[in-house]
Simulated assay, not measured.
Amino acid sequence: MRKTQLALLTLGATVFAGFVTVTPAAARDYPWCAQGGEYDYPGECAYSTYEQCQASVSGRLLYCGPNPMVAYGQAPQPQPRPHRRARPVAPY
Rank of each mutant, 00 (worst) to 15 (best):
Q79F: 12
D40L: 12
A25N: 03
R28V: 04
T21L: 06
A25D: 02
Q52D: 14
A90F: 08
L61C: 06
T21D: 03
Y30T: 00
Q74E: 10
W32S: 00
T4Q: 04
N67V: 00
G73C: 10
A75H: 12
P31W: 07
M1V: 09
G59S: 04
P88E: 12
G37T: 02
A46P: 00
A27L: 14
Q54F: 02
K3N: 14
Y92R: 10
P76S: 04
L6E: 07
R87P: 10
A17T: 15
L61G: 06
E51N: 08
L8W: 11
A90Q: 13
F19S: 09
F16D: 06
P24G: 06
R84P: 03
A75W: 10
G36D: 02
H83T: 15
N67A: 08
R85E: 15
V20C: 04
R2V: 12
Y50S: 08
T4I: 15
Q74F: 13
Y72Q: 14
V89A: 14
K3F: 09
V22F: 13
G59K: 06
R81F: 08
G36K: 05
S48N: 13
P78G: 01
G12I: 11
V15N: 01
L61D: 15
Y30V: 00
G65I: 03
W32Q: 03
F16Q: 11
L8G: 00
